[in-house]
Amino acid sequence: MLRILFVWTCIAFFNFIAIAFFIPVDLITDHAKEEISNTKEFIGDSSYSYLNNKTYITYKKAFVDTGIQEGSFKLFIPTEDQKDNSGALRNLGAPLFKWIDEKIKMYWNLIYFGMLRFNYLLFFFPIFAPFIIAAAFDGFYTRRIKLITFQLTSATRYGYAMHSIIFLFFVPLFFFLYPFSIHPFFVPLWFILFGLSIRLLASNLHKI
């Protein structure tokens, strides 16, 4: 578990570095527009508007109303008063500060987009939660049938299922942080694979 957590932490760190220095702002913007278009087509305009409004309210309360977003710009970019007090050095570093301003805006857009993806995942949770529960029960009953009929469970399948569940558990972090477009079917597919992995695990338990 710690090894997987370390791997995902490294992925998040390199993702941060790549966005800061190697990925153009326009490219991320284009991918965001593409994903929004695909999501609207997949779940409908009304459902997307609901998710977007819900995300905006949460984002505004958490970062705009608290002053965190504004403070992030003040932390790295001098204000007009600070520039005026600099005298002849007022325009020194202007290209650098412009670049920093664009990157900070891009990061806040990615944070907003990550929150939107989180709400998108929650949108499908009530739909697929019964499927996951049913898959778990089916797995346990399959295990009981194996006990009654003296069939053997598979340690190999149990290991695959356990590793799959651990891997799938961290996949949403990748989903929230990934800066490029992801097809909206990704979330339903994740729920389906998670449910099937739980079923496989339950049906091959060595002890009950």
Rank of each mutant, 00 (worst) to 15 (best):
Y158Q: 14
H183M: 07
Y158V: 01
A94P: 06
D81T: 15
P179T: 13
I208A: 10
A134L: 08
D84E: 10
K74F: 08
R90P: 08
V7P: 05
A18S: 11
L173A: 10
D45G: 11
F113W: 15
L205Q: 08
R117L: 06
P95K: 03
K105S: 08
I148K: 12
V187E: 13
L121E: 12
Y141F: 14
L51I: 10
F150W: 11
D30A: 15
P130L: 02
Y59C: 06
P126N: 02
K105E: 00
I132N: 07
L51D: 05
I23A: 06
F14S: 07
W99C: 01
H31D: 02
L27E: 04
G93T: 03
H183D: 12
L205C: 04
I133R: 07
I132R: 13
F140K: 14
S47T: 03
A12W: 07
F175C: 12
F123H: 06
D81Y: 14
R144G: 06
Y112E: 04
I23S: 05
W190H: 12
K40P: 03
T142F: 00
K40D: 00
E102M: 08
A32K: 02
F185G: 09
R143T: 01
P95W: 07
F63N: 09
I145D: 15
M106L: 15
A18Y: 09
K207Q: 14
G44E: 02
R143A: 12
V25W: 01
I192C: 01
S47Y: 12
V25Y: 04
F176D: 03
Y59K: 09
A129D: 02
D81F: 12
L110G: 09
G159M: 09
G159P: 03
G93F: 04
I198Q: 04
S72C: 05
S49T: 12
R117G: 00
I11W: 13
K61G: 11
L122K: 08
K83P: 01
A161G: 10
M162N: 13
